[in-house]
Simulated scan of single mutants.
Amino acid sequence: MSYKLAADEVTVTTKYIKEQVQQAINNPSDEVGVKTKTLNLWCDSSNVWLPDEYILRATKKINLEDFKDSTCYIGVDLGATSDLTAVSFLVIDEDKYYFKTHYYLPESALREKADKELYKYWKQQGYLTVTSGNVTDYDYITNDIMKYSELLNIRAVGYDKYNATQWAIDATEKGLPLEEYSQSLGNFNKPTREMERLILSGKAVIDNNEINRFCFRNVTLKSDHNGNVKPNKQVDKKKIDGTIAMIQALGCYLEVPKFTNELIII
């Protein structure tokens, strides 16, 4: 199969198409681009980013106490005033990337939110921390992170500045190394693709928390004309906070100059 694009006889060959299809098979984040640009197919946005089997394969119980004094990168996806907040800790050890994510919710959400029964179940199972009051308790979350600063060497705490100005000020005053990390497409492209690579290659280890799997199931990929991608909600009200926080933590790590993570021998 080939067709003429211009007078200079530039063509799209069968070999090229097969290579592009294989690329999409190996890299799910490229699937939409290959379908639309190479195969001229309409893509249904309901396609899940990574099938459940990959996340289950990467799932394992993680205890941060096992990584005492290790360097750690944190991603924080702050919820709105009465919504879910995710804080993800990333520790890299022996070529494995360990993601431990904590979830927080104000108690009013157990009465008022559409997913209140699910939230109650998660709380009962110990997957979710519910704080008192009807708004997100940012101080509680900050203090939780501070406790881990005594266990781990926190290198950076990545956060999106939207709705987080006061929290960022307070957390910085307490000594946390905050790094503004925009959730724009261009900024999220690299860590999103790297997260995919780590999961598919078996190098990512994701804590055995049911909310993590729930978040991944709700993720599709949003892309632009340059091929940049980032997680997007499959359905507007579904939660992907944990996935976003993990990618922010990974993004913070990727922004650190490589030589600072390695022992330099002269």
Rank of each mutant, 00 (worst) to 15 (best):
A7C: 08
T13C: 02
T13I: 01
T14D: 14
T14R: 08
Y16D: 12
I17C: 07
K18M: 11
A24M: 01
D30M: 14
D30E: 15
G33P: 00
K35M: 13
K35L: 14
T36Q: 15
T38K: 09
W42L: 14
W42M: 12
D44G: 02
D44Q: 06
S46I: 09
S46D: 13
N47I: 14
I55W: 01
R57S: 13
A58H: 02
K60I: 00
K61I: 08
K61N: 12
I62Q: 00
N63L: 08
N63C: 04
N63F: 07
N63M: 05
L64M: 08
D66Y: 10
C72Q: 07
I74S: 03
G75F: 06
T85H: 04
T85S: 13
D95N: 15
Y98K: 09
Y103T: 00
A109C: 03
K113T: 11
K116M: 11
K116C: 13
K116A: 14
Y119H: 05
W122M: 01
K123S: 04
G126Q: 05
L128D: 01
T129P: 00
T131H: 02
S132V: 06
Y140N: 11
T142A: 13
D144V: 06
Y148F: 13
L151I: 15
L152G: 07
D160N: 07
T165F: 09
T165A: 15
Q166T: 15
E173S: 11
E173Y: 11
L176K: 02
L176C: 06
L178R: 06
L178G: 10
L178T: 08
E179R: 15
G186A: 07
G186R: 02
F188Y: 15
M195T: 10
E196T: 00
R197C: 02
S201N: 10
N208L: 08
E210V: 12
I211M: 06
N212M: 04
R213Y: 03
R213S: 12
C215E: 03
F216P: 08
N218K: 05
K222L: 14
D224Q: 03
H225M: 13
H225R: 15
G227F: 06
V229P: 07
V229K: 09
V229F: 09
P231N: 07
K233D: 01
K233E: 11
Q234I: 12
K238W: 11
K239E: 05
I240V: 04
T243N: 09
A245I: 02
C252M: 14
Y253Q: 10
L254D: 05
K258G: 11
K258Q: 12
L263F: 12
I265K: 11
